[in-house]
Simulated scan of single mutants.
Amino acid sequence: MTNYSKLPTTSRKLFRVVVETPRGSAVKLAYEPKTGVFEYSRPLPVGNTYPYDWGFVPSTLGDDGDPLDGLVIHQAATAPGVVIKCDLLGALRLRQRDPDGSKVRNDRFIFCPRKEDAPDEPVAAADVPGELRREIEQFFLSSVLGTGKKIKVKGWQDAAEARTSLKKGMKSFKRKFAG
Protein backbone atom coordinates (compact mmCIF):
# COMPACT_ATOMS: atom_id res chain seq x y z
CA MET A 1 0.00 0.00 0.00
CA THR A 2 1.41 3.37 -1.06
CA ASN A 3 1.41 6.19 1.45
CA TYR A 4 0.87 9.07 -0.95
CA SER A 5 1.30 11.68 1.77
CA LYS A 6 4.96 10.67 2.25
CA LEU A 7 6.05 10.66 -1.40
CA PRO A 8 8.94 13.03 -2.14
CA THR A 9 7.63 16.54 -2.79
CA THR A 10 9.76 17.16 -5.85
CA SER A 11 11.25 15.31 -8.78
CA ARG A 12 13.87 17.13 -10.85
CA LYS A 13 12.66 20.62 -9.90
CA LEU A 14 9.02 19.70 -10.52
CA PHE A 15 6.44 19.43 -7.75
CA ARG A 16 4.36 16.31 -7.33
CA VAL A 17 0.62 16.71 -6.84
CA VAL A 18 -1.47 13.72 -5.75
CA VAL A 19 -4.95 13.96 -7.24
CA GLU A 20 -7.72 13.39 -4.72
CA THR A 21 -10.69 14.80 -6.64
CA PRO A 22 -10.65 14.80 -10.45
CA ARG A 23 -11.83 17.62 -12.66
CA GLY A 24 -15.62 17.54 -13.15
CA SER A 25 -16.42 15.84 -9.84
CA ALA A 26 -19.40 17.15 -7.86
CA VAL A 27 -18.09 15.57 -4.64
CA LYS A 28 -14.93 16.14 -2.65
CA LEU A 29 -12.76 13.09 -2.13
CA ALA A 30 -9.99 12.96 0.47
CA TYR A 31 -7.00 10.68 0.87
CA GLU A 32 -6.90 8.84 4.21
CA PRO A 33 -3.26 7.91 4.98
CA LYS A 34 -4.17 5.37 7.70
CA THR A 35 -6.11 3.19 5.27
CA GLY A 36 -4.44 4.24 2.03
CA VAL A 37 -7.78 4.89 0.30
CA PHE A 38 -9.56 7.87 -1.18
CA GLU A 39 -12.78 8.43 0.74
CA TYR A 40 -15.95 10.35 0.03
CA SER A 41 -15.70 13.58 2.00
CA ARG A 42 -18.77 15.64 1.06
CA PRO A 43 -20.83 16.86 -1.88
CA LEU A 44 -20.13 20.28 -3.34
CA PRO A 45 -22.96 22.82 -3.31
CA VAL A 46 -25.56 22.18 -6.03
CA GLY A 47 -24.26 23.09 -9.48
CA ASN A 48 -20.57 23.13 -8.48
CA THR A 49 -17.93 20.81 -9.86
CA TYR A 50 -14.17 20.88 -9.57
CA PRO A 51 -12.86 22.96 -12.48
CA TYR A 52 -9.51 21.14 -12.50
CA ASP A 53 -7.83 18.21 -10.77
CA TRP A 54 -7.58 18.86 -7.02
CA GLY A 55 -5.27 17.27 -4.52
CA PHE A 56 -2.27 17.79 -2.31
CA VAL A 57 1.49 18.22 -2.39
CA PRO A 58 3.05 15.20 -0.65
CA SER A 59 5.52 15.55 2.23
CA THR A 60 4.24 19.02 3.11
CA LEU A 61 2.28 20.28 6.08
CA GLY A 62 0.09 23.39 6.23
CA ASP A 63 -1.16 25.47 9.13
CA ASP A 64 -4.35 23.38 9.15
CA GLY A 65 -2.38 20.18 9.87
CA ASP A 66 -2.99 18.71 6.40
CA PRO A 67 -0.71 18.53 3.37
CA LEU A 68 -0.68 21.70 1.27
CA ASP A 69 -3.50 21.89 -1.29
CA GLY A 70 -2.93 21.91 -5.04
CA LEU A 71 -5.05 22.64 -8.10
CA VAL A 72 -3.63 21.35 -11.41
CA ILE A 73 -4.74 23.42 -14.38
CA HIS A 74 -5.00 21.24 -17.45
CA GLN A 75 -7.60 20.13 -19.96
CA ALA A 76 -7.86 16.48 -18.89
CA ALA A 77 -9.45 14.80 -15.91
CA THR A 78 -7.44 12.10 -14.19
CA ALA A 79 -8.45 9.90 -11.26
CA PRO A 80 -7.84 9.69 -7.52
CA GLY A 81 -4.28 8.55 -6.81
CA VAL A 82 -2.71 9.82 -10.01
CA VAL A 83 0.53 11.70 -9.32
CA ILE A 84 1.27 14.60 -11.67
CA LYS A 85 4.71 16.24 -11.93
CA CYS A 86 4.04 19.96 -12.24
CA ASP A 87 5.41 23.42 -12.68
CA LEU A 88 4.30 25.86 -9.99
CA LEU A 89 2.31 28.85 -11.27
CA GLY A 90 1.50 30.62 -7.99
CA ALA A 91 -0.81 30.43 -5.01
CA LEU A 92 -4.13 31.83 -3.90
CA ARG A 93 -3.67 33.04 -0.32
CA LEU A 94 -6.67 32.24 1.89
CA ARG A 95 -7.57 32.79 5.54
CA GLN A 96 -9.95 30.11 6.78
CA ARG A 97 -12.21 30.27 9.81
CA ASP A 98 -13.41 26.88 10.95
CA PRO A 99 -16.77 26.21 12.64
CA ASP A 100 -15.03 26.21 16.05
CA GLY A 101 -13.84 29.78 15.41
CA SER A 102 -10.17 28.93 14.87
CA LYS A 103 -8.42 30.76 12.05
CA VAL A 104 -5.68 29.30 9.85
CA ARG A 105 -3.97 30.18 6.63
CA ASN A 106 -5.03 27.61 4.03
CA ASP A 107 -3.52 28.58 0.67
CA ARG A 108 -4.34 26.88 -2.63
CA PHE A 109 -1.26 26.25 -4.75
CA ILE A 110 -1.79 26.41 -8.50
CA PHE A 111 0.13 24.12 -10.85
CA CYS A 112 0.23 22.97 -14.46
CA PRO A 113 1.69 19.69 -15.76
CA ARG A 114 5.24 19.94 -16.97
CA LYS A 115 5.28 21.11 -20.57
CA GLU A 116 6.72 17.81 -21.89
CA ASP A 117 3.66 15.95 -20.56
CA ALA A 118 1.05 18.44 -21.78
CA PRO A 119 2.43 20.40 -24.77
CA ASP A 120 -0.97 21.82 -25.76
CA GLU A 121 -1.92 23.30 -22.38
CA PRO A 122 -2.96 26.97 -22.59
CA VAL A 123 -1.39 28.13 -19.32
CA ALA A 124 2.27 29.09 -19.38
CA ALA A 125 4.39 28.30 -16.37
CA ALA A 126 4.81 32.02 -15.69
CA ASP A 127 1.52 33.14 -14.20
CA VAL A 128 -2.20 32.58 -13.77
CA PRO A 129 -4.15 35.00 -16.04
CA GLY A 130 -6.42 37.54 -14.32
CA GLU A 131 -9.77 36.15 -15.47
CA LEU A 132 -8.76 32.62 -14.45
CA ARG A 133 -7.68 33.96 -11.05
CA ARG A 134 -11.16 35.41 -10.48
CA GLU A 135 -12.82 32.15 -11.55
CA ILE A 136 -10.62 30.12 -9.19
CA GLU A 137 -11.38 32.52 -6.32
CA GLN A 138 -15.12 32.19 -6.95
CA PHE A 139 -14.92 28.41 -7.06
CA PHE A 140 -13.20 28.20 -3.69
CA LEU A 141 -15.52 30.76 -2.10
CA SER A 142 -18.57 28.77 -3.22
CA SER A 143 -17.07 25.33 -2.51
CA VAL A 144 -17.24 25.81 1.28
CA LEU A 145 -20.94 26.71 1.40
CA GLY A 146 -22.71 24.49 3.93
CA THR A 147 -19.50 23.34 5.65
CA GLY A 148 -19.47 25.93 8.42
CA LYS A 149 -16.08 27.14 7.16
CA LYS A 150 -15.57 30.67 5.97
CA ILE A 151 -12.71 31.71 3.73
CA LYS A 152 -11.36 35.12 2.83
CA VAL A 153 -9.17 35.76 -0.20
CA LYS A 154 -5.95 37.49 0.85
CA GLY A 155 -4.42 37.88 -2.62
CA TRP A 156 -2.12 35.95 -4.89
CA GLN A 157 1.52 34.89 -4.75
CA ASP A 158 3.61 34.57 -7.88
CA ALA A 159 5.59 31.38 -8.49
CA ALA A 160 8.67 32.52 -6.55
CA GLU A 161 6.65 33.53 -3.47
CA ALA A 162 4.60 30.33 -3.66
CA ARG A 163 7.79 28.25 -3.88
CA THR A 164 8.95 29.84 -0.61
CA SER A 165 5.61 28.92 1.02
CA LEU A 166 5.90 25.33 -0.29
CA LYS A 167 9.40 25.04 1.16
CA LYS A 168 8.02 26.17 4.52
CA GLY A 169 5.42 23.39 4.27
CA MET A 170 8.18 20.88 3.46
CA LYS A 171 10.14 21.98 6.56
CA SER A 172 7.02 21.68 8.74
CA PHE A 173 6.48 18.13 7.47
CA LYS A 174 10.12 17.17 8.21
CA ARG A 175 9.92 18.63 11.72
CA LYS A 176 6.76 16.66 12.50
CA PHE A 177 7.65 13.35 10.86
CA ALA A 178 11.47 13.19 10.93
CA GLY A 179 13.06 10.81 13.29
Rank of each mutant, 00 (worst) to 15 (best):
G36F: 07
P45E: 04
L92A: 12
L88N: 03
G62F: 10
D107N: 15
K103H: 09
D120R: 11
Y40P: 00
D127H: 14
P33H: 04
G90P: 02
L29T: 08
N48Q: 15
L68R: 04
G65E: 01
F109L: 13
Y40F: 15
W54C: 07
E131V: 13
R23N: 15
V83G: 00
D120Q: 10
R93D: 14
F109C: 06
L94V: 06
T35G: 11
R108Y: 08
P80S: 10
V123Q: 03
K34Y: 10
G81E: 02
A124G: 14
D98L: 13
R105V: 14
A118C: 14
A91H: 01
P129R: 06
G47Q: 02
R97W: 12
L89S: 10
V46S: 12
R133W: 01
R42A: 09
P45R: 10
C86I: 09
P99A: 08
F111T: 05
D120H: 12
Y40K: 04
K34L: 14
G65I: 10
G36D: 06
N106Y: 00
L132W: 05
K34T: 13
Q96N: 14
A124R: 11
T49N: 08
G101Y: 13
E121F: 05
I110N: 13
F111C: 07
F111D: 06
I110C: 07
L92R: 05
L132R: 12
C86V: 02
